[in-house]
Simulated assay, not measured.
Amino acid sequence: MEFLVITGMSGAGKSQAMKVMEDMGYYCMDNLPPALLPKFAELCYESKRTIDKVAVVVDIRGGEFFYSLFKSLEGLTDKGLGYKILFLDASDKTLIKRYKELRRPHPLNQEGSIIDGIAEERKLLEELKNRSYYIIDTSRLTIGMLKDELYNIFLEGGESRKLSILITSFGFKHGILMDGDLIFDVRFLPNPYYIPELKKVSGENKETKDYVFKWPQTNIFITKVIEMLEFLIPFYIEEGKTQLVVGIGCTGGFHRSVAITNEIGKILKENGHRTIINHRELR
Rank of each mutant, 00 (worst) to 15 (best):
Y27F: 15
M29V: 15
L189Y: 03
E22Y: 06
A55V: 03
C250F: 06
L177I: 12
K100S: 07
Y236W: 14
M145E: 15
I277Y: 07
G203K: 07
K206V: 14
Y27C: 07
F87M: 12
D148N: 14
M21I: 04
V5M: 11
E281R: 13
F172P: 02
A41D: 07
P190G: 10
W215N: 06
C28I: 12
E197A: 08
S257N: 07
A90N: 09
Y26C: 04
E111H: 14
N130T: 12
Y27N: 03
T208Y: 04
H106T: 02
Y26F: 15
W215G: 00
K199D: 03
E263K: 15
S257L: 09
I85A: 01
G112P: 08
K173A: 01
L76C: 09
G13F: 12
T77Q: 13
S202W: 13
S47W: 05
A41T: 11
S169T: 06
S47E: 02
S169R: 05
R161Q: 13
G63D: 03
E263F: 10
I6C: 12
I153G: 06
F221Q: 02
H273R: 12
L268A: 09
E101N: 13
E74V: 11
V258G: 08
L182E: 08
I264W: 02
G82Q: 12
G63Q: 08
G144M: 04
V54A: 11
